[in-house]
Design a protein around this nucleic acid. Structure first.
Lengths: 125, 125
DNA sequence: ATAAATGCAAAGCCTTTGCTAATCT
DNA sequence: AGATTAGCAAAGGCTTTGCATTTAT
């Protein structure tokens, strides 16, 4: 995936601890070491890492997007107040739970991603 | 939920046909009848309708938020190219499908929403 | 050497907010 | 009349882009 730069290494390094951060949270962290760390560089690399499968972007209504190392896990719990996100191993996925870990669960959403018929046709042309 | 205005009725009316639209798609449609329909009014009412459970906001990485009448359904298929969204009745939910309706499925995500332990404690104070 | 990545600042997209005028009860 | 809602325009949050400079290979 292109050249290995100090910035890329620092970005990935910032994921080793802690919860799925927002871009701004990452930037704050990265600028403690390197005050000139560019916001553009961060966003460009986050996008690239998401494209190559290193990171995964997590979106939910009303919250800023968050990023996590892509472990392949597609089950998550998110706090609607602070935005904290935890991965959820398959074995922990039960329908209509009241609690997961320490989260008081309010609702859930299952989303399938794909390509609709019309867009499939458009791609073939 | 407050007064019934023409604008609110027009907004809900715009949902009777078609797929979960973005705010901008709705505005275009609403302005065909009423060219002065205000963007602010649209957004304020969309938020209010989401709060009172009339509408549901759908978010996914890389796409503008979309809105649909809240049928209580929490399973969806979304086209990663054009953003088209379909509800998915419970009976149609199968693990790792190749196709759903006419969508070629690429992946899926299950998200539980709740309140984490720390935020629960903060609320109690 | 040269292609790629960075930093900076400006632009962009989507959404919210402040304020005045209009509207419902 | 009084409170709510609409419209307008400006501001805001988050992300992307253009361009000159630096850096990895």
């Amino acid at each position: 995936m292109g050249r290995i730069t100090e910035q890329k290494q620092e970005i990935l390094g910032a994921f080793k601890e802690g919860y799925a951060p927002t871009a701004e949270e990452l930037l704050t962290k990265l600028r403690k070491k390197n005050p000139d760390f560019s916001r553009a560089t961060l966003y460009r690399n986050l996008s690239a890492f998401c494209e190559d499968g290193t990171l995964k972007k997590i979106s939910a209504p009303g919250m800023t997007d968050r990023y996590e190392l892509d472990t392949g896990c597609c089950y998550h719990v998110v706090c609607e107040i602070c935005g904290k996100v935890d991965d959820l191993p398959l074995g922990d996925v039960i329908p209509d739970p009241e609690y997961i870990y320490d989260y008081a669960i309010t609702h859930h959403e299952l989303m399938f991603y794909g390509i609709c018929e019309k867009c499939q046709k458009d791609l073939d042309m």
